[in-house]
Amino acid sequence: MTETRSPLVEMRDISKHFGGIQAVRDVSLDLYPGEVVGILGHNGAGKSCLMRVLSGAMAPSAGEIFVDGAKVAFTNPLDARHCGIETIYQTLALADHLDAPANLFLGRELKTRFGNLDDRRMAAEAKTVLKRLNPNFTNHTAPVASMSGGQRQVIAIARAIYFDVKILIMDEPTAALGPSETEMVAELITKLRAEGIGIFLVCHDMHDVFRLCDRVVVMNNGRKVGQHRIEEVTKDDVLSLIIRGELPADWTARNAA
């Protein structure tokens, strides 16, 4: 199976505490190419915190991160991006007063030979990638504040996949979306997986988790309480892990039966 290949990313014994509060405790995690790993747990379980460590937005208190076997230390989100780690944040992290191309290229602007912003090229590139995600996307020059939730989500996704992405972190990408847009995101995840991109999917929707993920990792109180291939577990098993932090007493692997 995939385990014979080397992992895209490996997090070893990651801990993060804020003063006396331990948000993440000794969590180890790996991700293989073309794999979707669901990160589950109720609010405050430490999953967003763990993902922020991987995306470079937060420095871990302890632990190591390896990308393609090489040890890395991220001091800011740009470091993580250089390693091919892109993040779609739950808040989308868009600058409301800027238009779609400006947001798409924020922090990585395209420039002309003289170092000026190449707005024309950024607009053309943005148009292409946005059109691929949503053919109805036309108002590229309006500030993103005036756009619908779906359109804003499309910009956030486009920003992650436009660049050379190897590892994609999606923090509740469908939480604010309608059914057809959720379907678009699901299709996209399937397509990216086929291209060999590894995806961490932070998600609350059991239906989506069982439809899209290859593996699930469940967190409870900052600890990793379970890691299973999706064929091994049922929705009830996962819910038990999320709520009680352990599997039902009489648990046997679903696919072993």
């Binding site: 995306s55 937005a57 800011n76 989100p77 740009l78 991006r81 993040t87 944040y89 808040t91 989308l92 992290a93 868009l94 600058a95 409301d96 007063h97 800027l98 400006a102 924020l106 922090g107 990585r108 602007e109 420039k111 170092g115 000026n116 912003l117 920003r159």
Partner: peptide, 25 residues
Amino acid sequence: LHRRTTGRHVYAVGSNEEAARLSGV
């Protein structure tokens, strides 16, 4: 403000500081 990266980042920081930070500004 309008043609250089610095200017673009000035607007981004004022518009959404956290988003700008996460975008590598």
